[in-house]
Design a protein around this nucleic acid. Structure first.
Lengths: 339, 339
DNA sequence: CTGTTAGCGCTTTCAC
DNA sequence: GTGAAAGCGCTAACAG
């Protein structure tokens, strides 16, 4: 392996000088600089990041910890983080808690051992678990939380503000006469604060709440949806709490012998190209996780660089997109089957 | 920061001994071991991976380099690699070449500087570019290529064997009378060897080739598909060369005022839950990239651990799933519109 | 401007 | 079994 000493020898300078040109220190004579650069070139020298890390106690790596990497939004987040990180010379270490708070803590612990410079977390379970894990030890690990609903008191947060979009969606349903709504969610993504916000919105629109079903595996949503729709008192609208559930809910609607939006309206959280490919296309409540996580990573990196003017939180609003999967409740249409 | 010296002091032993218990060296007296462990516990000591790395010249990190992280299969691969790595105490650094061979080389260079222990690459452009970049310098970086069609001569390869599935799909189409096929692919995923294999299969089935269109952006597939289908001599079957294209092709079919499978058959490369949610569901040619990349990562890790009995390549076959998006060519159905 | 030097925290001989 | 000591390759502080 070719080290900084080899370069120094070849360039007839000291290692200190080589280090200086490597780190773009201003006080290096242009001639010296050129000689060193040439030696580096000739030797094909690559600085050893490990040694550099040890010395500077930085790794230029940020951790990206997911509650569940199987969520369709995850890939957009990975891309966003990778893009922001890459642009600043950082690397992104991706880990997956698989919906398990214990795994989440274990991953945080590992990332601390690896001395990741910072961390972005999509939390699973109570946030305190994350807070404890990142602040464990002497120096807490700089962390940006991906926030559900509200910023966190201790940790900088990239908040996904779903409130207005949810209100709008519920209002839309209410205006079309819907009173009985069912929400299907997955075990790996149960967001309590969203649940509360949701219930509040429902009440405000004159509904007394929604049936909520949590499925273990996404495909279980087929059966769950079918049963819901074929029950004695079926909901008139179904909401998929996570984008991964949407294709299964759609199959469930079909399995019940129904169609949206005529027999039941359908709204999904999350967005994908597929939502537009259906006929009619799907109404969704979604935030752009690519941008969101890119901004979260950018914020983290500003923090890491000691940028005092960095904001404490960033926020993006979810948007409710009206397409074709929501319609009036069947009862209100009476007979005559329009459309 | 609490270091190994602090632990040694507290446990009244030397740093060497602490290091030994840390590394589960067999020759440590159980009593000593316990005392050290206790000191570690009390001090909340976490070994510093950077120092360890420098000393052992291993980082326990593998790089995962994508040709295009926006491909829907990417997330499955990330999960597979993360799972295999995590299970063996490795971390996964994810990078994205965004369809650009130069970026690919740049990322490989960066990963070498970071001293990633190994690398998994979904190559973009000529493989030689990857081979050069990983073998640059004194010690080549252990690398597993994700293979398109065939294993590589120099690098261990995780081969996606698409041959039989493609043959079967083409045969299926041929048996239903299809003679004019169009393939829509994306700029960021153009696989030359697949193209050749494809043409060979077509010829074998008595077709003289397929129209092939490369789109710049996925959504361009809408227009392209519509134009194809409304031309004077439209293809009777459309193939989406990448799963990300499928929803757009579907929209294109609709934009042309047509329906699959009646007016044109449709097959997509790649798989997703959405393919099952359509009515009728989509025929696909796909390999399980979760398993595939998990196995690729496992192979890499075996290599890194010096496992001589590790196979040189691994391989998974693509599968052609017949669902409902392929039917007889319109002309053969004459009038009478069955179904 | 440049050379010299002292470690960063850990693993790993080499003695005892 | 355990301790002492020599660095891994680099950065930064201090002289000059």
């Amino acid at each position: 392996m070719v080290t900084i000493r080899d370069v120094a020898k070849r360039a007839q300078v000291s290692v200190g000088t080589v280090s200086r040109v490597l780190n773009e220190h201003p006080k290096v004579r242009p001639v010296t600089r050129r000689v060193v650069l040439q030696a580096i070139e000739e030797l094909g020298y690559r600085p050893n990041a490990m040694a550099r890390n040890l010395r500077s106690s930085r790794t230029d790596v940020i951790g990206l910890l997911f509650h569940d990497l199987a969520q369709p939004m995850a890939i957009r987040s990975v891309r966003g983080a990778e893009e922001a990180a890459s642009a600043s010379g950082y690397g992104v270490l991706v880990t997956d808690a698989q919906g398990d708070a214990d795994k989440q803590e274990e991953h945080i612990r590992r990332l601390r051992e690896r001395r990741a410079d910072g961390l972005i977390v999509f939390p699973v379970g109570p946030r305190t678990s994350v807070v404890n894990a990142v602040s464990e030890g002497d120096a807490p690990m700089p962390t940006v939380l991906i926030g559900q609903t509200a910023p966190h008191a201790f940790l900088p947060t990239a908040v996904v503000d779903e409130g207005p979009a949810v209100e709008e969606a519920i209002g839309h349903l209410a205006s079309l006469g819907h009173r009985r709504i069912a929400v299907v969610t997955s075990r790996t993504y149960t967001n309590q604060s969203r649940g509360r916000m949701f219930q509040a919105a429902l009440r405000r629109c004159g509904m007394d709440g929604a049936t909520s079903v949590v499925v273990e595996e996404w495909q279980d949503a087929v059966e769950v949806t079918r049963d819901l729709l074929t029950s004695d008192d079926p909901p008139t609208a179904i909401i998929a709490g996570t984008h991964g559930l949407a294709p299964w809910v759609i199959q469930g609607i079909r399995a019940a012998g129904k169609r949206y939006p005529d027999d039941a309206s359908f709204v999904a959280f999350g967005e994908s190209d597929w939502a537009l490919a259906f006929d009619p296309p799907l109404n969704v409540i979604a935030v752009d996780f690519y941008t969101h996580t890119r901004d979260a990573a950018a914020l983290l990196i500003r923090m890491l660089k000691g940028d005092e003017s960095a904001p404490r939180n960033v926020s993006h609003q979810s948007v409710y997109s009206r397409r074709g999967s929501v319609g009036p409740v069947p009862a209100l249409k009476h007979s005559g089957e329009q459309r």
